[in-house]
Simulated scan of single mutants.
Amino acid sequence: MENRKIAEEIIRQLQLFSLSGVYGVLLGIWYEFFRILRKTFVHKNRIVHLEDIIFCLTAAIGLFILFQVYNQGMIRFYCLFGVEGGVLLYFFVLSRWVGKFLSYLVGFFCRIIKIARGIFGFPGKVIVKNTGKTLKNMRKTIKIIRNHK
């Protein structure tokens, strides 16, 4: 009976270690997303700092939830090693392919947004241009009327 409890505990710890590794890979993908955004769009330092804060907060919240749900809030070093192992696995093995895929996705969505902006922006440009001309004509008319008084 005692051996069975010990075996179940070891299996549970191995599962938590594996889950921590998967979380590390997910953190790598999440950070890669921010790297692709920085490569695609020019950022000012403040925006880069904001992105770093967002990454750190979401990573910490995710790790907190992982520890709360699977380990009653207790921090174990093997979990931290699992996260680190997952991150290293991602950056040394998976980073190249996932980075290319994320670059493609970001580029694809940028093209869709450009097309949508062109389609929906054209009527707006026409309205603004015509409204501007109408306002200029109204201003001229008002000046003429004021000068004749």
Rank of each mutant, 00 (worst) to 15 (best):
E2Q: 15
E2K: 15
K5C: 05
K5H: 09
A7L: 15
A7E: 08
A7M: 08
E9T: 12
I10V: 13
I10Q: 11
I11M: 14
R12I: 07
L14Y: 11
Q15C: 15
S18T: 14
S18N: 07
S20E: 01
G24I: 01
G24Q: 02
V25K: 03
L26N: 05
E32H: 05
F33T: 00
F33L: 05
R35S: 10
I36P: 05
V42D: 08
H43Q: 11
R46I: 15
R46Y: 12
I47G: 04
D52V: 00
L57K: 00
L57R: 04
A59P: 00
A60D: 02
I61E: 09
I61T: 13
F64L: 12
F64R: 13
Q68A: 13
Q68K: 15
V69S: 09
V69L: 13
N71Q: 14
G73A: 07
M74P: 06
I75K: 14
I75P: 05
F77D: 11
Y78M: 12
Y78G: 07
L80F: 03
F81E: 12
G82E: 00
V83E: 01
V87F: 03
L89P: 01
Y90M: 02
Y90V: 01
Y90A: 02
F92V: 12
V93D: 04
S95L: 09
V98G: 04
V98I: 10
K100D: 05
L102C: 02
L102T: 02
S103C: 09
S103E: 07
Y104D: 03
L105N: 02
L105Y: 02
L105I: 00
G107H: 09
F108Q: 07
F108E: 14
C110I: 08
R111H: 09
I112K: 10
I112F: 03
K114V: 10
A116P: 09
A116R: 02
I119W: 04
F120T: 02
F122K: 13
P123R: 04
P123D: 01
G124V: 02
K125T: 06
V126K: 13
V126F: 06
K129A: 10
K129N: 07
N130F: 10
G132N: 11
G132W: 08
K133S: 12
L135I: 14
L135Q: 06
R139K: 12
K140E: 05
K140Q: 11
I142V: 12
K143H: 09
I145E: 07
N147S: 15
H148Q: 08
